[in-house]
Write a protein that binds this DNA or RNA. Structure first.
Lengths: 117, 117
DNA sequence: GTTCTATATACTCACAAAGGTATATAGAAC
DNA sequence: GTTCTATATACCTTTGTGAGTATATAGAAC
């Protein structure tokens, strides 16, 4: 049942934060590091976990690995990501991550090719 | 973060099935057993897991323990249960459980006090 | 009181997950 | 080629989870 794999991905705070930020657009690992304030290995492993279960897709761009939400999400995934967005909008931690993303966006634009907006 | 606890509950097939069936109304353990076709201890432990995290509530009625969804679910819980309902509607296993519930309802009505509809 | 019924809990085992440290890899720059 | 940078992976430890077997508990029936 694919639903389970989705929920497995959603039951960790770090992964929820990654997905929340990804809702704004593609991003590379080092930018996740800055936004979440978590070590590289932790970010990287959780992204691998999400990738193995089809919650994110990756593309290499030079040295950078650019992660994004699936281009064609399943019905279940779409529903759950929408639900997460909805819940995240009221949550301080999630909001703080998005605020940081917004603040760092100009800096990112100059230092990487992933077009972080 | 309460969201995490919700997702922890949702990342197991048995618990998803329990919650799906509970969407139709309160039910006691032995009826879950019949509907899911799983052993008592398994049902009972997963219900305890759900209860500890506030996803279900219990009330004793004689020998029976009647479980139901929270009377006043949080915003997050409400959103996620709705999402689950939505996804479950398209899933064969979930549909089968609901079909069994419907089929067994008359029998339940005669043998227990939980008013399983 | 004893017995029965419905349910919960304790205990075990196997396994997955999360975090940290150290190291490997792939591509870019030189 | 060497070096640097970004990212991934291996390994280890701790903790949590799921399932099963056996046993305990609480109330009902007698």
């Amino acid at each position: 049942m694919e639903l389970i794999q989705i929920y497995e991905c959603l039951c960790d705070a770090t992964r929820l934060r990654l997905l929340n930020v990804l809702g704004q657009g593609p991003l590379c690992v080092c930018h996740f590091q800055e936004i979440l304030g978590e070590p590289q290995v932790k970010i990287s492993k959780h992204l691998a976990y999400l990738r193995e279960r089809g919650l994110v897709e990756v593309e290499r761009s030079g040295n950078w690995m650019v992660y994004e939400l699936p281009a064609k999400p399943s019905r279940e995934l779409k529903a759950n990501l929408a639900c997460l967005q909805d819940c995240a909008a009221e949550n301080p931690l999630f909001r703080r991550d998005l605020a940081r993303l917004k603040k760092l966006a100009p800096k990112f634009a100059g230092t990487s090719p992933c077009g972080c907006a």
